[in-house]
Design a protein around this nucleic acid. Structure first.
Length: 827
RNA sequence: GGGGGAGUGGCGGAACUGGUAGACGCACGGGACUUAAAAUCCCGGGCCCGUAAGGGCGUGAGGGUUCGACUCCCUCCUUCCCCA
């Protein structure tokens, strides 16, 4: 007689089919139930699903299943971030249509996701490359435009010569393209921007309300927004009516200015030196500087280089004249591109001044009171009384700061100002595979938005992929159109939108993916939003999460929603690493998800990836140990199948006096408590799973020890079987369904209430008390958890080994921690 | 250079509020079953000394606080991420 074998190959498709037929994972608005919106960051459909994806979905699905069993009305959708470069590159190199390529990739992703047994509401699936979706990109863009949140201007942009496109500041990494690492160049183009800076303060302040976001993500966003308070001061150029504006965070040091440096790319520079004898040399220097990368220029350890323009400016506070220089360590784009040089109180300025023999004027004294510009060997950046500062002499610099700003304002030399590192979001892309920007250029009417009723502006198919320039410009049907205002001949905008726009509001769209009158039905949005739990890679800590927060605030101000923040809780899953690098196609270190499922089944793969490491931690991939997860599921299968009739006997009459029965009942209750808390409070799936393993071990031992023959043994065994199946169901849903059915329970295990525990039974009846002598464990004994200090002390002092210590030396101190230990100090 | 993590057996990791370091699993060693193997089950295990009882050492390094430190404080090292 052979017993049935655990066969994921048969079990898994069976239940996947059953789930699909019965539609048990569909989400429906139900105001009588508490909702929970659980969401994973949607993937780019490259076609291959690797371990990074698998980890993401295993976490989200386990959590969503847990919440359903906990009684929440759960929304758990999936979609595809389908616009982007890979599809377009495939079109260029392999001559395939990007739409077709993308749709095929999506199909492949879906089939693997279904094979994983993920409990998505598949009816809500969306793909951002479909007109029904990007329609709303365009609609939101137009609404933002009406509000002044979208605008067009010529701007020096980051240009990647290799990708042939403009990049947002956020997409420039170490001076190179985020995608191909080519050196980024500066180029002037007419571009569309979204005014994210309008929300800079709110984006910054609301971070404080996000209590359930990882601190490090908030820190990164704070730094990215980079708010600094200070003053903007205008310096008149000698012999001209130009003024150069500068921003400083240290207005208290303005009396210590001895020079000014401008960035090599400062737009005023050519005009400033025009016609002077230094013109040639300065512009030459500037060109040389611009060839260096941003990191090189900002490197503090490197020697700074500069050149005198020959022009001078007046420091308005004391009327003195100082030189204007150009230097490599000042970068345009932060502040105003011109920096006042205060060498006495800024280390970079100090080094620069010493190198070029510029004067150093102390305006804040240290505690010695003896600082002088000629003798100091590094800048003094601390606080102290102000000196050489006219009316401010003698005041503490920090306290005088605000008055100093008022002083500047009163004399019309400058004003208090706040500066942000955050720039407006450049969204124009000279690319085909993206959302067309709904704008028409008419010689007569100028820039004309496409009327709302003409949306969506459909991305045309009659384009040429040559690998050069924007393919959209090759579409005859697209480019030439008529002006919506005057009906005269007009040209369409051929730039498309940054794909980060697609992912900035997709979570709203899931609440109502087929809605035709707007991005989503505000009522449905109001029911489901905000996302209660968002799960995704730490690599999106800045870009995507900041843009999504901005969009939410923008949509709120359009009256579409009342939520201020889209994601209440955020879990940043650690990256899956292989051979020292993030798993990615370009690195060639991808481990496909279906490979492991082929060998062991979806349940094993899911269980293993969750068991291998806590979710937030980076996971260096190795399949060492998968066997263990597979063996565990086999053991569960065997154990339950052998005793499948037991579940029916759960909760029968119990015999409280047998130790083995009591111990297993304790184990069941303790495990339910631990698994529940590990999932709910700590997101520690790895320890939740290990707790289930312990329960299975206990149950197995119980059976081996003849526990089923004891009065009450079958009842508690039934409780154990039930707990094992239910606790396992979020991690190995197919096996759990199979076992639930085999034990005679009605479909579906996914609809069962999550098991409860008895807090009294979850705690032990005896605890082991440790006896320490001078900090070292010298004995142990068992006691009731309720034992008093005196009882424990007495018991400890009775132990012969401990008495020996006391005979030899004198007891100096005795500490008793009830339920834990007795600690003796002897001398 | 600034900001934020992380460092625990051969490996992944556990230790929740300062209270038994190493749960659970992998790999390994021994045994049972088997003609044999696989599978399964049982036993073992941080390191060092010791036949053992036992003792010493031990959470990146060094110091500190404490009856007691993986946990708190200081200094340092290594490493990863973000920003320059």
């Amino acid at each position: 007689m052979s017993s049935p074998r655990y066969s994921p190959r048969e079990i898994e498709p069976k239940w996947q089919g059953r789930w699909e037929e019965s539609g048990i994972y569909r989400a429906q608005e139900d105001p009588s139930k508490e909702k929970f919106y659980c969401l994973e960051m949607f993937p780019y459909p490259s076609g291959d699903l690797h371990m990074g994806h698998m980890r993401n979905y295993a976490i989200g699905d386990a959590y969503a299943r847990f919440l359903r069993m906990k009684g929440y009305n759960v929304l758990y959708p999936m979609g595809y971030d389908a616009f982007g470069l890979p599809a377009e590159n495939a079109a260029i190199t392999r001559k395939v249509n990007p739409a077709k390529w993308t749709r095929q990739s999506i199909e492949r992703m879906i089939s693997v996701q279904k094979r994983m047994g993920l409990s998505y509401d598949w009816q809500r699936t969306l793909a951002t490359c479909e007109p029904e979706y990007y329609h709303w990109n365009q609609w939101i863009f137009l609404k933002f435009m009406e509000k002044g949140l979208a605008y067009r201007r010529a701007a020096p942009v980051n240009w990647c010569p290799s990708c042939g496109t403009v990049l947002a500041n956020e997409q420039v990494e170490n001076g190179g393209c985020w995608r191909c690492s080519s050196q980024v160049e500066k180029k002037d183009l007419e571009q569309w921007f979204l005014k994210i800076t309008e929300y800079a303060d709110e984006l910054l302040n609301d971070l404080d309300t996000l209590e359930n976001w990882p601190e490090r993500v908030k820190v990164m966003q704070r730094n990215w927004i980079g708010r600094s308070e200070g003053a903007e001061i205008e310096f008149p150029v000698v012999g001209s009516d130009t003024v150069i504006p500068t921003f400083t965070t240290r207005p208290d040091t303005v009396f210590g200015i001895t020079y000014m440096v401008m960035a090599a790319e400062h737009p005023m520079l050519p005009q400033l030196v025009a016609g002077t004898e230094n013109e040639e040399g300065v512009l030459d220097f500037a060109r040389r500087v611009l060839k260096k990368s941003a990191i090189e220029r900002a490197d503090d350890t490197r020697d700074k280089e500069g050149i005198d323009t020959g022009r001078r400016f007046i420091n308005p506070v004391n009327g003195q004249e100082f030189p204007i220089l150009v230097a490599d360590y000042v970068v345009m784009g932060y502040g105003t591109g011109a920096v006042m040089g205060v060498p006495a109180h800024d280390q970079r300025d100090f080094e620069f001044a010493r190198k070029y023999g510029l004067p150093v004027t102390v305006v804040i004294q240290d505690e010695t009171g003896k600082l002088t510009g000629d003798t100091m060997d590094c800048a003094y950046v601390g606080d102290g009384p102000m000196v050489n500062s006219g009316p401010f002499d003698g005041r503490r610099n920090r306290e005088a700061m605000a008055d100093f700003v008022s002083y500047l304002e009163a004399n019309n030399w400058g004003r208090g100002a706040v500066s942000y590192r955050l720039r407006d979001w450049l969204i124009s892309r000279q690319r085909y595979w993206g959302t067309p920007i709904p704008i028409v250029y008419c010689d007569v009417c100028g820039t004309v938005p496409v009327p709302e009723e003409d949306l969506p502006v459909i991305l045309p198919h009659d384009v040429q992929f040559t690998g050069e320039g924007n393919p959209l410009e090759t579409s005859p049907t697209f480019v030439h159109t008529s002006c919506p205002k005057c009906s005269g001949p007009a040209r369409r905008e051929t730039d498309t939108m940054d794909t980060f726009i697609d992912s900035s509001y997709y979570y709203f769209r899931y609440t109502d993916p087929a809605y035709e009158k707007g991005p989503f039905d505000p009522e449905k949005g109001a029911y489901w939003m905000p996302v209660d739990q968002y799960i995704g890679g730490i690599e999106h800590a800045i870009l995507h999460l900041l843009y999504a927060r901005f969009f939410t605030k923008g949509l709120r101000d359009l009256g579409l929603t009342e939520v201020d923040e889209p994601f209440t809780r955020l879990l940043t899953q650690g990256m899956v690493i292989k051979n020292g690098a993030k798993m990615s196609k370009s690195m060639g270190n991808v481990v496909p998800a279906d490979e492991m499922m082929e060998r062991y089944g979806a349940d094993t793969a899911r269980l293993f990836i969750l068991f291998a490491s806590p979710p937030e931690k980076e996971l260096d991939w190795s399949d060492q140990g998968v066997e263990g997860s597979f063996r565990f599921l086999n053991r569960v299968f065997r154990l339950v199948m052998e005793s499948r009739e037991l579940l029916e006997e759960a909760d029968a009459e119990e015999d409280k006096d047998d130790d083995r029965v009591r111990s297993l009942r304790h184990s069941v209750n303790r495990t339910v408590k631990k698994v529940t808390e590990d999932i709910e409070k700590r997101f520690q799936f790895n320890t939740a799973i290990s707790a289930i393993m312990e329960l299975v071990n206990d149950f197995q031992r119980f059976k081996a020890d003849g526990g089923l023959e004891i009065p009450g043994g079958r009842s508690v065994a039934g409780e154990a079987v039930r707990a094992i199946i239910l606790l396992l169901s979020p991690f190995g849903p197919h096996l759990a369904e199979e076992l639930w059915e085999a034990t005679g329970q009605p479909y579906s295990v996914a609809r069962q209430p999550w098991p409860d525990y008895d807090p009294e039974l979850a705690t032990t009846r005896t605890v082991e008390i440790v006896v320490q002598v001078n900090g070292k464990v010298r004995a142990r004994f068992d006691a009731s958890p309720e034992s008093s200090r005196e009882e424990l002390e007495d018991a400890a002092l009775q132990i012969p080994r401990i008495r020996e210590y006391l005979e030899e030396s004198e007891l100096v101190k005795l500490v008793v921690v009830p339920g834990k230990l007795v600690s003796l100090v002897v001398r």
